[in-house]
């Protein structure tokens, strides 16, 4: 048996168990932790299925950011789930029906790893060869050196190539989705009246959410970690074209560094390093950088997001440059929105 499939089956069984356990658990804190475990298992499964970038994102966004967000929300919502009165036969029938229809619908899909599957044959090979070529009606010179491919070997990570160039428009809106979420939270969660920054605020569950940590050990060790997280974040940002990584993962990492800083040294200290107005501005600037790159391409006579228009003489280099720019936009928006969302959900002044 194919070792990939064997490992896949074993991990999936574990993941399903974690999922069921998370739903059965009555203590919401336990549920959230089990969901975190489920997410990490999924990250391993994605890696096993050759989806390195998805794995990285699941680990940072799914297991990391989402879990932190849930935990912080629980401190305001409460962790107790009332038991009883929530089993419903109609729901069960509906769910089983949906499941049966889906089992039927997937029964004729190609088997696991089938190299003859339509998904492997139609457009994927051209992505992997990175040899599609721009539409001929544009002013692109036809001398795009053949064998060099669309990006002149500058972007070996095809996931980044598809994400930032072939389907760059999707990714722009993905960034816009994050921005929208950030705006929705600013809109929905009312600011709690401002108090002096060093006042200890204790919320219902008794945890102190936004003053500095008392433990010297935590502050020293944690403080040492922060520069490394930041450097790693920038590395992931810049490395996206070559290996797994890119703006999304990097943005979450950078945000994590600042969140750690504010947990250790208090929010006021973080605000001194990173003023709030800058965070607010960065949310917009990221999307703006992305869309602005596209508009620049239009102004240079290409289609929207046609990076090769930025430098007609060296189209492959221009592609790589455009992708770096839009990835920077993604990173900027993700980092600032994650920071904003976490602070908003945490509550307190903002």
């Amino acid at each position: 048996m194919d070792p990939v499939l064997l490992l896949d089956v074993l991990l999936l069984i574990l993941a399903v168990l974690a999922a069921v356990a998370a739903m059965l658990q009555r203590d919401l804190l336990g549920s959230v932790m089990l969901m975190g475990i489920y997410s990490l298992l999924m990250a391993v499964i994605w890696a096993n299925l050759f989806a390195m970038d998805v794995s990285f994102t699941e680990a940072s966004v799914g297991a990391g950011a989402a879990t932190v967000l849930l935990l912080m929300a629980l401190t305001r919502i409460g962790t107790r789930e009332r038991s009883g009165g929530d089993h419903s036969l109609p729901a069960l029938v509906l769910v089983v029906l949906t499941g049966v229809v889906l089992l039927y619908g997937t029964s004729e899909l190609p088997r696991f790893g089938d190299p003859q599957a339509p998904a492997q044959l139609h457009i994927a090979p051209r992505y992997l060869a990175q040899d599609i070529g721009k539409v001929s009606d544009s002013a692109t010179p036809q001398d795009s050196p053949h064998g060099e491919g669309d990006f002149g070997h500058h972007v070996p990570n095809t996931v980044t190539a598809v994400l930032a160039s072939y389907r760059g428009y999707d990714t722009m809106f993905e960034t816009a989705v994050i921005f929208s979420a950030g705006m929705c939270l600013l809109l929905l969660l009312r600011p709690i009246p401002r108090r002096s920054p060093e006042t200890v605020t204790i919320d219902e569950s008794g945890s102190t959410s936004h003053q500095k940590s008392e433990s010297v050990v935590l502050r020293t060790i944690g403080g040492m970690l922060i520069p490394y997280i930041l450097v790693f974040g920038f590395y992931v940002q810049m490395h996206g074209e070559i290996g797994p990584g890119g703006g999304f993962q990097a943005g979450v990492l950078v945000a994590a560094a600042f969140i750690l800083h504010s947990l250790l040294f208090g929010r006021a200290a973080t605000d001194r390093w990173l003023p709030r107005w800058l965070v607010d501005l960065a949310m917009s600037l990221g999307v703006l950088l992305y869309a602005g790159t596209g508009v620049a391409c239009m102004a240079m006579g290409g289609h929207f997001l046609d990076y090769s228009a930025l430098d007609r003489v060296h189209p492959a280099e221009a592609e790589a440059l455009g992708m770096t720019l839009v990835e920077a936009g993604v990173g900027l928006t993700v980092a600032s929105v994650v920071l904003t969302i976490v602070r908003k959900v945490q509550g307190g002044t903002r």
């Binding site: 939270l185 929905l188 999304f248």
Partner: peptide, 25 residues
């Protein structure tokens, strides 16, 4: 492996976490 589903799911993961954030709010 085919990179296209990976890209789609990167997008979908981000969308689902964004939805979760709004739902929590």
């Amino acid at each position: 492996a085919n990179p296209l589903p990976h890209v789609l799911i990167l997008t979908a993961i981000v969308v689902s976490v964004s939805t979760m954030a709004v739902a929590l709010a």
